[in-house]
Amino acid sequence: MDIMMGMGTMKKMIRNQHNVDDTPMLNIDLHSHLIPALDDGAKDMDESLKLLKALEEAGYYKLITTPHIMMDSYRNTRQTIMKGLEELQIMAKQAGLRIEIEAAAEYYLDDEFITHIEKGKLLTLSNKYVLFETSYMAKPLDFESMIEKLISTGYTPLLAHPERYRYIEDFELEYKALKKLGIYFQVNINSFGGHYGKDAQDKAIFLSQNSMIDFLGSDVHHLKQVKTLVAIKETQVYKDIFKKNLILNNLL
């Protein structure tokens, strides 16, 4: 199955080499795990710098990296993230990298998320969007109330990789319901290549065809993901995203 898919994409890639490429470049990324040792992304500064270099070569000039904030595993705060960002920026400059690095966070919808909203300022993208995720297995019971709370506080909810949640079964119905709540969607580019499995790929294509994508993210944790990212950007499926969706990345 995968081999056939691979052949299909290869053919498409070859076919498209001669086309006039009018696909806009994605210069800004808003979802990655690049600050060393904060989460399951880059383990150390060395890996972080390698990732930055690879992303710069891939054509990005600005990265808003988003460490996990998760009650039970990655108890990051504004302070830990900003400290890590500063170190990374310094090291990147020393390594001669010109890529611009900012930081926000990827919030996990758990019991503590409400406290985060109540306690103080959340880490945002463009002072507006709050990137969040949920469990892949089950939708949190108080999902709707947390989103309402977020919006009423003045934030714009931005759901990270909506294609990766297994609990979504009725694509049409459930994604529309989420949209209706006022949630923006950030789809992982790698999902289009089957990197997260067939189910995530199907859902990503569904979202693309139904013009539901607002942002595209790299969700880079390690170097392999950058490589697949570059490959997918050559495919027709990727190019089709821009025909059907208004991608807001470059406005950040």
């Binding site: 892949y136 079964e169 089957g194 990197h195 997260y196 499995g197 067939k198 189910d199 390690h222 993901q225």
Partner: peptide, 16 residues
């Protein structure tokens, strides 16, 4: 699932 199969492969980052 109602739409095919999955196992651990490609499902989570660490599995890759």
């Amino acid at each position: 699932g109602s739409y095919g199969y999955y196992d651990g492969h490609g499902y989570y980052e660490e599995d890759d």
